[in-house]
Design a protein around this nucleic acid. Structure first.
Lengths: 129, 129
DNA sequence: CAGATTTTGACAACCATTTTCATTCCGACG
DNA sequence: CGTCGGAATGAAAATGGTTGTCAAAATCTG
């Protein structure tokens, strides 16, 4: 019953960056998989609910997913050029969020933190030829 | 030429929380303003480009806008119940983002940080009657 | 193997946002 | 004044990612 879901998960695992549902769907079809777009969406949602993949929203409102190596709380350092993503921990940030929240009387603090930059490969001297 | 834009900006200023374009539009109409949805979208984008308002995406992909008091870099502590938003500074986070980025060879670091919680008003003992 | 249940996926429906395009404003200029 | 031209406006249509529908297919159960 989880065949499709696993297939989606596997496809995601083959990428180091965040991919959109449409993207994953297109790639699976390219590789000959027989799967419908609807199913990809459902699989992705199920995986996200289960916490097996991380989700975030691009600036243009698309949901993008990524299979992360660790299932403990972490954040992402994303290359804004190629999308390559590194998982990073930030104990300091966790504490800061908690502190800032309670200072203002907020409880049940959660937070979203994403860091963007240009990775070393992408910022390497651009070849003109 | 900026009449409409100012009207939108003013409407936004009257709220302590992030509002969607549709939301702002509805409210302006309620107060008798003669304005089109298209114009609200355009005004909001212009204001965002100019840096006069802050934008972020809700979990369901809507863009929401807020007129913030300061135009220096800051983050938001948002009540997940009522939406009330407090502007917070986080020097520690800024440094952390910068450090983590450069440790991995990333340059031109930027980041997004939002903190969510339940504010004191909303977490107050819920009256059953 | 029949019947119940879940999963799947083609297609239609949604809905926030954008685009299109005709109209209205408004200042510049004759 | 009158009108020409560009900017702004907004109603309506188009877009596009995502979700809902529903019948067919796969899988389970006894």
């Amino acid at each position: 019953m989880t065949t499709r879901r696993d297939a989606v998960h596997d496809t995601l695992r083959q990428s180091e960056s965040f991919r959109s549902a449409q993207d994953v769907y297109a790639e699976m079809r390219l590789h000959g998989a027989k799967i419908g777009l609807t199913t990809v969406y459902r699989a992705l949602q199920a995986l996200a609910d289960k916490g097996s993949v991380d989700v975030l929203r691009t600036d243009d409102g698309e949901s993008v997913y990524r299979a992360c190596a660790t299932d403990t709380h972490h954040h992402h350092l994303v290359c804004r050029r190629c999308g390559r993503t590194v998982e990073v921990a930030g104990p300091a940030v966790e504490r800061w969020a908690e502190t800032v929240g309670s200072e203002h009387g907020f409880t049940e603090i959660t937070h979203t933190v994403e860091v963007f930059g240009t990775c070393s490969t992408c910022s390497a001297p651009a070849k003109t030829s």
